[in-house]
């Protein structure tokens, strides 16, 4: 295969992957952010304490998080058809991607928002602020660097999922690599897609880290900026730990 043969295939695959990831990320963020906030707010001792709601949302998020994406995709076939009228194509792939991304992002939001100092919430309460004010003026802005890092993590995870979704007719880079590289032994094309994915993921990671750090610095905060959530979640932030002590 020559480069002139590969080029249109690659550019189409790239734009398909871009579409899938863009739309599914948007939906995951738009739905996952309120869900993550609700997980914190409805928890015991939270501003909107509601044990039942908390359990229900928590359970849905857990199941959505732990289900392997490929199974989620197959299981959602009929739902996807109901929403988009088809089960193949980029639009159809966005449905399971978004639904897989929502609980993923919601958990990350929950972790990020929990790290906000409760004293700040109390300060705004003492000024007469209501719950909505607290969400808008404290919880979201104060966890913004972490939320940006969480979005980066979600985009990268969705790029991975999109490769799987592509094989079921969604197209994109993953599909291209499988169809040509695996089924037709076009090894060269496969390596090019691998390289493109590696570069794209690195760029996204870099941009996300940069944005999170810039925001973090703007606040003049010391201590490490939030990076990839799933790598760092277990480690307590030394700056936060110091504050608590």
């Amino acid at each position: 295969m020559t480069w002139s043969e590969m080029q249109p295939l690659l550019s189409q695959a790239c734009s398909e992957t871009f579409d899938m990831v863009l739309w599914s990320t948007l939906i995951a963020v738009v739905v996952g952010l309120p869900l993550g906030l609700l997980l914190v707010l409805t928890d015991r001792g939270g501003l909107l304490q509601n044990v039942v709601a908390n359990k229900v949302i928590g359970q849905i998020v857990n199941v959505g998080r732990s289900l392997p994406f490929i199974i989620l995709m197959v299981a959602l076939m009929s739902f996807t058809r109901w929403v988009t009228g088809t089960t193949i194509g980029t639009a159809a792939a966005v449905v399971p991607l978004a639904i897989g991304g929502i609980p993923f992002f919601a958990r990350l939001v929950e972790t990020a928002v929990r790290e906000v100092d409760g004293g700040l919430v109390e300060a705004v309460q003492s000024m007469g602020g209501n719950t909505w004010t607290i969400v808008r003026k404290v919880l979201v802005p104060e966890s913004l660097p972490s939320l940006i890092a969480s979005t980066t993590t979600t985009v990268i995870a969705l790029i991975g999922y999109s490769a799987m979704a592509g094989t079921v007719g969604g197209g994109g880079l993953g599909d291209l690599a499988v169809r040509y590289g695996y089924q037709r032994f076009e090894t060269e094309l496969m390596w090019i897609t691998v390289a493109i994915l590696a570069v794209v993921i690195s760029l996204i990671q870099f941009a996300g880290d940069f944005a999170a750090r810039a925001l973090h610095r703007r606040g003049g905060r010391s201590g490490p900026a939030p990076r990839l959530r799933f790598l760092k979640a277990a480690e307590p932030d030394p700056a936060e730990a110091g504050k608590a002590a």
Binding site: G119, A123, R218, R221, K243
Partner: peptide, 12 residues
């Protein structure tokens, strides 16, 4: 109300 740990918003 004034607090021991100031409770200022670091993002502002």
């Amino acid at each position: 109300m004034v607090f021991q740990h100031f409770n200022l918003l670091s993002s502002r």
